[in-house]
């Protein structure tokens, strides 16, 4: 999946819907990506960013299921760890869901790994999603 706007977002491993946890490293650009997806969502792209402020304001992750979004970043999940598990699992069936959490996710289903790379002064973000081999 590629979203070619002011900042280009490229998700490597096209079409692999599922749940991915970002690598446990600070300052890779997770929050930047989340904010970009929020902005692109306002412009009509089927993408979305969800963070702790949304959680505190009572925004439900179900919105992403109902709207049929295809790429969602769930940022700062450590702050609301264990919440909305069923909705997140359901969302991941038809969407690439990237979660920023520094612990093992408390998910019942499997989740995979995502690395993020920022290039060219933040003009390109690559999210490399790795599926575990069966």
């Amino acid at each position: 999946m590629t979203i070619d706007r002011v900042v280009k977002i490229q998700v490597v491993e096209n079409g692999l819907y599922g749940l991915y946890n970002f690598e446990d490293r600070s300052s890779t650009g997770k929050t930047y990506l989340c904010n970009l997806l929020k902005a692109y969502n306002r412009d009509g792209e089927p993408v979305w960013g969800y963070t702790y402020d949304d959680f505190r304001n009572g925004v439900s992750i179900r919105k992403a299921i109902e709207e049929g979004y295809k790429l969602v970043v769930i940022d700062r999940y450590d702050m609301y760890y264990g919440e909305m598990l069923e909705d997140i699992n359901e969302l991941a069936k038809n969407c690439i869901v990237l979660v920023a959490c520094n612990r093992f996710l408390p998910m019942k289903c499997d989740y995979d790994l995502c690395f993020i790379e920022m290039e060219a002064a933040g003009g390109l973000i690559k999210a490399k999603c790795l599926k575990r081999k069966p």
């Binding site: 446990d24 450590d78 520094n102 612990r103």
Partner: peptide, 8 residues
């Protein structure tokens, strides 16, 4: 510091 990555 649980929100910190291992590098931080």
């Amino acid at each position: 510091i649980d929100e910190c990555g291992y590098n931080a």
